[in-house]
Design a protein around this nucleic acid. Structure first.
Lengths: 347, 347
DNA sequence: CTGAAAGCGCTTACAG
DNA sequence: CTGAAAGCGCTTACAG
């Protein structure tokens, strides 16, 4: 760093003031054309690259967006980041990604560490009840909340229609004739999980007011789905269908059922939620609700940009993203169960 | 931002100078204990959080590591980042991740944009022949190259033993009795792909000096593997086994063979490279070389830390990471082909 | 169109 | 142990 070339070096060589160099490099129009091209040439020749911290300290803009996530692990987050990055790139913005690694108590410090590094924040906080404290730490930065519990606070929030998605899946299972439908729940304090459970219950009771919801515990992990599957196998009383709150648990359950000799979908139908890539490769391929994850991120990013430009965000743009029902073999009532192929269920 | 509280506010309220606030907050020992606790209390009460750009401009440290990758898409990169992040966190370092999205010509600007934002760089540059120009733009920052073509330059580099891995796989296929082994190659200018191809050739010729290498073109994408599989089906003359330079192509090839009615492994054995998660879920599950991707990132990060501390890096620590042979159903010479289960091939 | 100067919010020798 | 001051590398009114 000590050897690196600064704006002063460029100014000296180009025989102008640093102010002029700054203007020339930043494309201001109050620079003589001859001077500008000379400055540009010198800057290039010296391999000058502006010092980001200095620039953002004086200009009060960082051209960077902070993304604070619960975790970085897994397909969901990489797809989300990809969608965000797509929009950010178009606008010449960088991304500073940070996660609190499943420790919600570290979220505050993750948020505060963003000060002076970012112009705006995209925050995903699925842990219910975190919102008040969130507001305290968001400071004066424009922010968009992703997939978070709604709040009375003034924050812009955007997410997936988990409730509606769960109802859609239930309607599919009910239409296929299943009546005794078990549900593998997500983590207790997770807002997404809560909404999906709510959709399951409401749909079940809407179809038959005397039905008893059949809920198995889970935590979104494959292992918890596997445990739920084993629990079902041990029970002499089995459901017609199992709806897992996410695909990872559905897969865990599928393997448990396969191992235990329960045929899917012939003996038990199975469905998940998310449409992670593996879902269409397993045998039988998994019926699920497809969530357009990159679009979730991209749209949140666009909302943030509007917020930064002081454009008011109309309510319509905050309408949750509706997941799409993808019917595959795991819920097909009858017929051939073929191995998954390239042409099955997507590009 | 205008409303945010600065070190001056803390100093005023705590009735000390900004210098003292700075020292107290940074844990210097030349601060009276009573003063320190007062400053800390005030800072907390005011929800003060240091302005990062200002701090790094004056201290000349950013506590951030730049990670420049060819792309962000897919399991490989998210696993790599996870490994890097693991080590970074332990050291209280942040990560600034940037990708040039498959456009090598944007790599230079991605690298230069890191100036003044990071203390060190982790760079993955699989495109052969990029190295000289890399050196020009790395400036004075300590850097570690990941999975890149070796160079005479002074850069520290670390990667996977692609050549050795490919040979190991070939020895497995040869030991299973296969002689006519086709190879689906990766992109022409990719160093990883080049090394794997070299391992294939050498192993083939080592087993039989008169053998003719049978190389199909590919570019690491599933689609290109699918095309290669179709090409093999159309040919009346089929190989005993197919070794794809990565798992994605192996999967594409597998689907083509499945669709075309060629039984794997009975008629054609199949193997890939990488051990991506899907590899053990497909039917038949895929034999492959497992690369410990998080460890690749973690180790590179540790090398960078040593470099920053001016510790000399001994050659031993630069020894490439050796992939591990994972034999699954797609290359089993005979016996039962069962669906994948939870207990197959890993946690 | 251009330059001198103030200022962004910190850290760190330098005095005391 | 503490404070006044210089300085990090830029940008941006303010004059001219």
């Amino acid at each position: 760093m000590a050897l690196s070339v600064t704006i002063k070096d460029v100014a000296r060589v180009a025989k102008v003031s640093v102010a002029t160099v700054s203007r020339a490099l930043n494309g201001h129009d109050n620079v003589a054309e001859a001077v500008r091209s000379r400055v540009l040439a010198v800057a290039h020749e010296l391999r000058y690259s502006p010092h980001h911290a200095a620039r953002s300290l004086s200009s009060r803009r960082t051209h960077t967006i902070g993304v604070v996530l619960p975790d970085l692990y897994g397909e969901f987050f990489s797809e989300l980041i990809r969608g965000i990055d797509l929009v950010a790139r178009e606008c010449g913005l960088h991304l500073l990604v940070s996660s609190y690694h499943g420790h919600p108590e570290e979220q505050a410090s993750a948020l505060r560490a963003m000060r002076g590094r970012v112009d705006g924040l995209l925050v995903m906080s699925p842990h219910a009840g975190n919102i008040d404290f969130l507001s305290e730490n968001l400071a004066a930065l424009p922010a968009v909340l992703i997939n978070s519990q709604p709040t009375e606070s003034q924050h812009v929030a955007f997410g997936i229609d988990n409730y509606g998605g769960a109802r859609t899946m239930m309607e599919h299972l009910l239409a296929a004739g299943h009546r005794r439908i078990a549900f593998i729940a997500g983590p207790p304090n997770n807002f997404d999980a809560f909404e999906r459970l709510r959709g399951y219950r409401d749909a079940l009771l809407a179809a038959d007011a005397s039905a008893t919801p059949w809920v198995l515990p889970g935590d979104f992990s494959e292992a918890s789905g596997h445990r739920a599957g084993q629990m079902l196998l041990e029970d002499s009383d089995r459901p017609d269908a199992v709806f897992a709150a996410n695909d990872m648990m559905a897969l865990g359950c599928l393997f448990a059922l396969n191992q235990g000799g329960a045929r899917v979908p012939d003996q038990i139908a199975l469905a998940g939620f998310d449409d992670i890539p593996i879902a269409r490769y397993v045998a039988p391929s998994l019926t699920t609700m497809r969530v357009n994850i990159p679009e979730l991120g991209a749209h949140a990013m666009r909302l943030l940009l509007d917020l930064q430009n002081d454009e008011s965000v109309d309510a319509e743009r905050l309408t949750p993203l509706v997941p799409e029902l993808i019917v595959r073999e795991s819920s097909r009532s009858a017929g051939t169960v073929r191995p998954a192929t390239l042409s099955d269920g997507g590009p």
